[in-house]
Simulated scan of single mutants.
Amino acid sequence: MPFKPRRLCSCGKIVSTGELCACQIKRKAETDRRRPNANDRGYDSAWSKARRAFLDKHPHCVMCGKPAVVVDHKTPHRGDRTKFWDKSNWQPLCAHHHNSTKQSLERSK
């Protein structure tokens, strides 16, 4: 049965593919502690209503055509309320493309 080889973490430790190194777990926990909660970032009941209405009008992922479950901001709003509510900056995505492809694109910028 084939298996994936272990990988080298940026800290120099060897870890199994698909697992996080202790340094990555610590870094993620620190980042999560500093990040405002979803409500403070604008994802409140007004967003839920707008999101639902947008997905009703745009039910398919713009990348693959599967059912969309996420309204993504094409350009990250970074707390800018004008960008947050600019509907021309919204796009429907399936969970896969929002959580993988789009995140990779944003990290590479």
Rank of each mutant, 00 (worst) to 15 (best):
M1L: 04
F3I: 10
K4D: 12
K4G: 11
R6S: 11
C11S: 08
G12Y: 02
K13W: 01
V15R: 07
S16V: 02
S16P: 00
G18H: 03
C21Y: 01
I25R: 14
K26G: 03
R27F: 09
K28F: 06
K28H: 11
E30W: 09
R33V: 06
R34Y: 10
P36F: 00
P36L: 00
N37Q: 06
R41M: 05
Y43V: 10
Y43N: 05
D44G: 13
D44L: 07
A46Y: 04
A46K: 05
W47I: 03
S48N: 12
K49S: 15
R51E: 11
R52I: 08
F54D: 07
F54S: 09
D56T: 07
K57S: 15
K57Y: 03
P59I: 01
V62R: 02
M63G: 01
M63T: 02
A68K: 00
V69D: 04
V69I: 02
V70M: 09
H73S: 12
P76F: 12
P76W: 10
R78N: 15
R81Q: 12
R81V: 13
R81G: 04
T82W: 05
F84Y: 03
W85T: 08
W85D: 04
S88Y: 05
N89D: 12
N89Q: 13
P92L: 00
L93S: 05
A95W: 12
H97Q: 12
H97I: 11
T101S: 11
K102W: 01
K102L: 03
S104D: 12
S104V: 13
L105M: 15
E106D: 14
